[in-house]
Design a protein around this nucleic acid. Structure first.
Lengths: 150, 150
DNA sequence: GTAATTGCAAAGCTTTTGCAATTTA
DNA sequence: TAAATTGCAAAAGCTTTGCAATTAC
């Protein structure tokens, strides 16, 4: 494999891009940040801060969880990551990609994905009505097909 | 005023209705539940468990916060109340009314309301696509008009 | 050199839970 | 009397924060 520690082609560039995003706001390129961002990029979908910390520490055991939280917060502030509150459990973090949203069942807790298409019209309506620009990663709550309505 | 402790005309009936809802699931009518439900009904919009506890304790100082949490949970399970996670802060609880949703700005934290009309089409699309029935009280995140997009 | 970043540990906050005592049906 | 409910206190879980040491610029 090219790159360091099992990275995938293309990922390195994405990691650097995100470090650039942080650097653009006065941030610095540190080993910890690179490890965290790399682990984040290597993640398919959403992760909790806890899961991400575990993945980071698999490669870089010295990186502390509080640093993970701080980097996630910095990415969020820069608009590169989204924190999706899921309710009872820890927040789910995504890199901003904008291709799906989440549906969380308030009965069984299961989380499904739904494409952005269904939400696009809503986003337009909300923006027209209120000027509010919806996130690329919403968490919509309700009852899943299995748990039914009541 | 009619009724006990500054209640408003019509509210008493609503309080009893909610106690009925709980009773229908095997619940019992207790003084604590009546105080909590009354305070909840007397609240215009959303409250946190903490705020609700304060209001309850203004009239009934002996009611414990854990009881407030348990009643909210029971109302949620009965479909009479909705817990809306707002992100950093405590969850916002609503009686199910179904006339609006919330928009939370991830930059400034401000929460706006938006009517159900804008969401109705989304709800239909999501249900058609996934069988998922959206909640009557969603919390949609994004950036408000003031904070703009980035 | 200066400001940002980090690790560590501790604190903060909301929410949940165990249990004995009390109350409702 | 049996089951549900309550208060109290403690625990749990996620996230944030103070601070001194380190590191990037």
């Amino acid at each position: 494999m090219a790159g360091h520690g099992g990275s995938v082609a293309g990922s390195d560039a994405e990691v650097e891009r995100l470090l650039d995003v942080l650097a653009a706001e006065g941030g610095r390129r540190t080993a910890a940040r690179r490890a965290i961002v790399a682990a984040f990029v290597a993640t398919a979908g959403a992760v909790t801060a806890d899961e991400l910390t575990a993945r980071v520490q698999a490669d870089a055991p010295d990186v502390n969880q509080s640093t993970v939280y701080r980097v996630l917060e910095a990415l969020e502030a820069a608009g590169a990551a989204d924190r999706a509150e899921t309710g009872r459990e820890a927040a789910a973090w995504h890199l901003v990609a904008g291709d799906h949203h989440h549906l969380r069942c308030s009965v069984c807790g299961r989380v499904e994905e739904v494409g952005t298409d269904a939400v696009a019209a809503l986003a337009a309506a909300v923006e027209a009505e209120t000027g509010f620009v919806l996130s690329d990663h919403l968490v919509l709550t309700g009852r899943c097909a299995r748990c039914g309505r009541r």
